[in-house]
Design a protein around this nucleic acid. Sequence first.
DNA 1: TTATTGTATGAGTAAACAATCATGTAGTTG
DNA 2: CAACTACATGATTGTTTACTCATACAATAA
Lengths: 107, 107
Amino acid sequence: MEALDLCADILKAMAQPTRLRIIKLLRDGEHCVCEIFPAIGHEQSNTSRHLQMMLKSGILKQRKDGLKIYYSLRHTEVLEMVGLAEQIVVHEAERTARLVKQKGSKS
Amino acid sequence: MEALDLCADILKAMAQPTRLRIIKLLRDGEHCVCEIFPAIGHEQSNTSRHLQMMLKSGILKQRKDGLKIYYSLRHTEVLEMVGLAEQIVVHEAERTARLVKQKGSKS
DNA sequence: TTATTGTATGAGTAAACAATCATGTAGTTG
DNA sequence: CAACTACATGATTGTTTACTCATACAATAA
């Protein structure tokens, strides 16, 4: 697999609202599935699939402890990337606001 | 639309090998579609769709000049994010290499 | 005007995705 | 052992994606 495809996989593993929510939850350290799925408001099975997906892409790691499986972020770069994406969103919001002001509102 | 969904849109706009190729092409400044699609080895229509997609997500901007339309990156953060994704890929490659060494190869 | 060039887009298709429900599995407790 | 808990996964479904081919549109040139 090419480096470009691997890069795309990393990005794809982050490019989904539910998964972004999970990533943000994991900012403060590891959490088990039974903590995560109520926190994000999705079914256990759905949450588990998202976690598996991010695990296989390499951005998460897991640690088993008895019945529970704790997931955590493997690379701090993931959080940096989310931060940059949020910056872009802010810039875009500012730009859109400027455009509306220039063109005038339609209400 | 929530900030989280907007973030996911930004990431999704980058999370595809062809689009990553385009983004890397645009590192050195603006290019028109007729330059981009031969460079990335895709059809003009397909290339145009990817460009439209990235334009609508806000990570690209366009400038018309006669018949040609020049696309360029709107936010430097996009390149920073690609750089971070590449770092993760390198870390993952190193980790996988270590695992193979530990477990021994199967050849 | 017509022809040409550069780009966008409708229609169609195969594949991937996200979600759900039901079920399976592994570890724990009684 | 059986019952329970935490998690993963098969089967299914509706939606989205990436791509192609053909065509439309817009600006320029003849």
